[in-house]
């Protein structure tokens, strides 16, 4: 697939493009600043855009804002955000949409998982880092519907939010797939969400709920 990388650290940028090229992808363009990234993406129109949250000029959340800009221009453009640590403030509005991923940078070292996540995003799915999902599914108030979930249900929900299928979840938690399905029903009931057969739509429903 054709990929554009927005990343200010040359070391990381070169390492990543080399890794991606070696795995059969085409790094069609790179950008060091948020502004130039938007221009490059417009010009190249890649299949996937990988963006570092923290970029020049201000080194705060310029990457996230560039992502928002790009999404505004093309709502289904697949975007994979990377960052050194969890920053949810500016990506949270993109989290519930399809074709979006948000991972910590060190996930890149698990090359296979990383390539999977890229594939899911390009297919319109979701790829969220477990730590980010944990931050999203943690109950913050007594009346938070998340507080009603059991520990196991929360675990399942986190995996759903990461974009895993029922089968993948069952394998990860060493459960029967039917057990995972019954957990899912219970979760949707407690969160008052209509169940959906399609994994992607399911994730989106969950994340939309969590975002509020």
């Amino acid at each position: 697939m054709r990929i554009v990388i927005g990343e200010d650290s040359a070391l990381f940028r070169e390492g990543l493009s080399r890794l991606l090229t070696e795995n059969g992808h085409d790094v069609a363009g790179t950008a060091e600043t948020a502004d130039s990234l938007v221009d490059v993406v417009r010009a190249v129109d890649p299949d996937l855009t990988i963006i570092d949250v923290r970029m020049p000029p201000t080194m705060t959340d310029d990457g996230a804002r560039a992502a928002v800009t790009l999404r505004a221009e093309r709502p289904d453009r697949p975007i994979l955000m990377l960052s050194q640590h969890i920053e949810t403030r500016h990506v949270v509005e993109l989290v519930g949409t399809g074709g979006f991923g948000y991972l910590l940078k060190d996930r890149v070292l698990r090359v296979g998982d990383f390539l999977d996540a890229m594939r899911r995003v390009v297919d319109g799915g979701s790829a969220l880092d477990p730590t980010i999902v944990a931050a999203l599914v943690a109950p913050t108030r007594a009346d938070d519907p998340l507080a009603a979930l059991s520990a196991r249900e929360r675990e399942v929900l986190a995996l759903v939010a990461e974009g895993r299928s029922n089968g993948a979840i069952a394998a990860q938690l060493v459960l029967a797939e039917r057990t995972v399905e019954s957990h899912m029903r219970s979760i949707f009931q407690k969160l008052r969400i209509d169940d959906a057969p399609d994994t992607h739509r399911r994730v989106i429903a969950v994340l939309t709920q969590l975002r509020q």
Binding site: S9, L11, G15, E22, R54
Partner: peptide, 24 residues
């Protein structure tokens, strides 16, 4: 904190990626 994240941490990951390239 910035230095740790953007400096050392980033470098380590870059090294990791090169190691992966070599590995493959």
């Amino acid at each position: 904190e910035r230095d740790l994240h953007d400096g050392a941490q980033q470098r380590l990951i870059a090294i990791g990626m090169r190691l992966r390239s070599v590995q493959y």
